[in-house]
Amino acid sequence: MTEATVILYAIYIFMLAVFVGFEVISKVPVQLHTPLMSGTNAIHGIVMLGGMLVLAESGNNALLTWLGFAAVVLGAMNLFGGFVVTDRMLEMFKTKKPAAGGK
């Protein structure tokens, strides 16, 4: 693949993802706004992978290594914290459903 094709493919991916992102949450009830925000927040925790890559490639440049390390730590906080927080929020929605059904 030529350089231009690679760049073009990246732009294709970007464009399609924009449309999918818009379409996928077209209707969302108000009480789910906060959990949804938190859930999308967790998904961009994938930035940790970027941190892993730059850290792996930093070679013997100490400054870049530590910047990469910091990126991994921050990314991991975002990723793991994000999923846990979202799950805690949604857990509460879950517990009240059986309570409502049981009565």
Binding site: A17, F22, L36
Partner: peptide
Amino acid sequence: IISGTLVGASGTLL
């Protein structure tokens, strides 16, 4: 690219 854009787009709509 995919995950970031998904969040960017759905986050904007949200």
